[in-house]
Simulated assay, not measured.
Amino acid sequence: MKRINLHILSLVIIFLHFAACNSGSQKKEYSYYQDQGEIFATGYHIKYAYGRSLKKEIVAELERFDLSLNPFRDNSIITKVNRNEPVNPDSLFIKVFRKSMEVSRKSGGKFDITVSPLINAWGFGFQNMDSITPEIIDSLKMFVGFEKISMNNNGQINKTDPRVTLNTSAIAKGYACDVIGNLLERYGVKDYMVEIGGEITARGANEKGECWRIGVDKPIDDATGMQHELQVILSLCNKSMATSGNYRNYYVKDGKKYAHTIDPHTGYPSQQDILGATVIADDCMTADAYATAFMAMGKQKSIELAKEIPGLYYYFIYEKEDGTFGIEYSEGFEQFFHPFDSM
């Protein structure tokens, strides 16, 4: 396979002129507020139309989310589950767990929130690649697998092996977007855009009464990661979007490109043809989970699965056999395209 330095598939929020896609005009006294900060070691940007700033409420809701699902927080619910301590999971934990199990089943286990031991073994940027052995992988696989953990009707977790641990990072950022969107709607906000770590939920319209515009970066042969060129501009009204990609997070050894996505079945980095998967769905948790799953499944199996999920659209950038890039997207995805020449 041809070696290519790939630029990370990123999301750029841009507010330029586009044909209106208005959800109903806001009251004139409303202003568009923009809040930003950090959660899960990544940034968030939230823009919304309201009569006052809701930053205090947003921060409080993100804190509640963090206390439930941050596996690196000592007193979080997920940490207590991982340590096999008595804990009563909250509604946030229960919802993301059940959605994770659903996607795991539909993807044949390619999406798996128990895969952390394998990810940790490989190390950040695959720094431990030279020390990984088949024996290490086999030993870790003994307590990796979504079928090794379950939840009863009361929300209590059951494990087949106490060493099983959870990490919901492949779905949590998307769900956090939904949670903040729900918070804004409880205050009567109709027009907003929530972006957390590149995952997005958008409702209504921006301050110009237009659809929210999102740019997806093109893969570029650039080792510095400084070059940016848009692959496509998308327009979102009342939809959510998530993107997963291997543009920086891969390692080349002996001519093989090892993706940042670990295959839970093999224990090794996935070597599939998809380089970037952008998924649009009604909610961001669904989009986030399937963007991750598709990276591990490969293009053909992902296309087949996507057909079974109502309201889900995909846009894949993949590597052809000759090392060049190909594009494939689902039927109906063209409704989200925005032409470059009207910028």
Rank of each mutant, 00 (worst) to 15 (best):
199 E>V: 02
167 N>T: 08
172 A>F: 02
260 H>Y: 10
167 N>W: 11
336 F>D: 10
290 Y>Q: 13
115 V>E: 13
15 F>L: 12
305 L>I: 00
270 S>T: 03
224 T>M: 15
121 A>G: 06
249 N>T: 05
93 F>I: 10
24 G>L: 09
267 G>W: 06
151 M>S: 12
339 P>E: 00
45 H>F: 06
69 L>Q: 00
277 A>M: 01
217 D>G: 04
323 G>I: 06
135 E>A: 06
137 I>V: 10
228 H>V: 12
139 S>F: 07
66 D>V: 07
294 F>N: 01
86 P>R: 08
322 D>S: 11
40 F>S: 10
182 N>I: 10
9 L>S: 04
124 F>C: 08
66 D>L: 08
4 I>N: 04
277 A>W: 02
203 R>A: 12
209 G>C: 07
247 Y>D: 09
45 H>R: 07
7 H>N: 15
169 S>I: 05
160 T>L: 11
207 E>V: 05
242 A>Q: 15
240 S>L: 12
150 S>F: 01
304 E>R: 12
155 G>N: 13
334 E>K: 14
156 Q>L: 12
282 D>K: 14
220 I>N: 14
50 Y>T: 04
196 I>H: 04
129 M>F: 08
31 S>F: 02
240 S>T: 12
271 Q>E: 01
39 I>K: 01
324 T>L: 06
61 E>V: 14
130 D>Q: 07
86 P>D: 02
86 P>E: 03
23 S>T: 11
263 D>T: 03
15 F>V: 10
289 A>P: 04
129 M>T: 02
329 Y>E: 15
68 S>F: 08
195 E>W: 12
152 N>K: 04
313 Y>R: 08
1 M>Y: 02
280 I>T: 12
221 D>L: 06
74 D>K: 14
172 A>Q: 00
140 L>C: 14
223 A>F: 11
108 G>P: 00
15 F>H: 15
313 Y>K: 12
211 C>M: 11
88 N>T: 03
107 S>Y: 00
190 K>Q: 13
192 Y>H: 09
153 N>H: 14
156 Q>I: 08
128 N>F: 06
257 K>I: 02
36 Q>W: 07
315 Y>P: 01
185 E>I: 03
38 E>S: 13
182 N>R: 13
12 V>K: 14
150 S>M: 05
113 I>D: 07
38 E>H: 09
81 V>R: 01
162 P>H: 04
296 A>D: 00
181 G>D: 01
163 R>P: 14
163 R>Q: 04
210 E>P: 07
327 I>K: 12
244 S>N: 03
136 I>Q: 10
84 N>W: 02
98 R>T: 13
186 R>C: 14
